[in-house]
Design a protein around this nucleic acid. Structure first.
Length: 152
DNA sequence: GCCAACGTTGGC
DNA sequence: GCCAACGTTGGC
């Protein structure tokens, strides 16, 4: 089993919105980055666990844990002209964008902030804490996962 | 295939 | 709101 981290903007879709959605399950649509796409399409498997991270907000950091419950499939929002993530170059016969469904597992007792993550020597290899990182889906090693949970 | 211009991300 | 970092686009 692998571990991951997925970013979301709390003013768009935060951890509380996630906890409130039907079946507590959400198709992680709208990702338009090829590296992130490849991980969702090829690497994320049912049962993999995922940190939910709040970005672009007052207190960026890890706020919850989720689980992959449906493996990569074409992102329907790419085909919908009325959707803000519509991509006319994504052909239904040859989809450009993929997503996974994730299920809310729990909210952390507190936000583990980006500042705190950056202060941890054990985490300096994480893509998240490196400068200029813009990936919205990224792998987390087993050791990093355990270390982060131990901070809670 | 290079690379300048442009758009987006996201911390601060 | 600023701006650095990065990805994408498109002319050549």
């Amino acid at each position: 089993m692998r571990h991951w981290l997925m970013k979301t903007e709390p003013n768009e879709f935060g951890i509380d919105d996630f906890a409130d959605c039907p079946d507590q399950t959400e198709p992680w649509d709208g990702v338009r980055n090829y590296q992130a796409r490849n991980m969702m399409r090829d690497d994320m498997k049912n049962g993999d666990r995922v940190f939910i991270y709040h970005s672009n907000c007052d207190e960026p950091g890890i706020v919850g844990v989720a689980q992959v419950v449906r493996e990569g499939y074409p992102d329907p929002t790419a085909f919908d002209p009325d959707d803000k993530h519509f991509d006319p170059k994504s052909d239904p016969d040859n989809p450009r964008w993929y997503l996974v469904d994730v299920k809310f597992e729990r909210k952390l007792r507190r936000t583990i902030t980006l500042a705190e993550l950056k202060s941890q020597g054990a985490l300096e290899g994480m893509a998240l804490v490196r400068r200029g990182n813009r990936l919205s889906v990224m792998p987390v090693s087993g050791d990093e996962w355990e270390h982060i949970l131990s901070l809670e």
